[in-house]
């Protein structure tokens, strides 16, 4: 299941990342912002993506930006919300 989520998340990240930066070059736990792949604006689009695709309501769960800046952080959040 995590693999399916990963593929979906990576496909989405490719649509919002900065051009000319290979997503695959960054480890799953690395910060995408610190690695220069996305800017802080992209966080908004990640939030919108998670709301639409996974029905996560951040008004209920709270929003921790640092959770959403790495692929592993996003996947952990998806799995956590799926279990809740």
């Amino acid at each position: 299941m995590r693999e399916a989520h990963r593929a979906r998340v990576l496909d989405f990240l490719r649509t919002i990342q900065k051009p000319d930066r290979p997503l695959e070059a960054v480890a799953e736990s690395d910060s995408l912002v610190e690695a220069g792949l996305i800017d802080s604006l992209a966080l908004l689009e990640i939030v919108a993506f998670l709301e639409e695709q996974y029905r996560i309501d951040f008004a209920e769960t709270g929003l921790e930006p640092d959770q959403l800046t790495s692929v592993s952080g996003i996947l952990d959040l998806i799995e956590r919300e799926a279990r809740a």
């Binding site: 490719r14 900065k18 051009p19 000319d20 800017d39 604006l41 992209a42 689009e45």
Partner: peptide, 14 residues
């Protein structure tokens, strides 16, 4: 400025 930056991003090489 944010709106303008959003339209500049994507997979296409800049």
């Amino acid at each position: 400025s944010m709106r303008r930056e959003q339209t500049r991003r994507g997979t296409a090489a800049a």
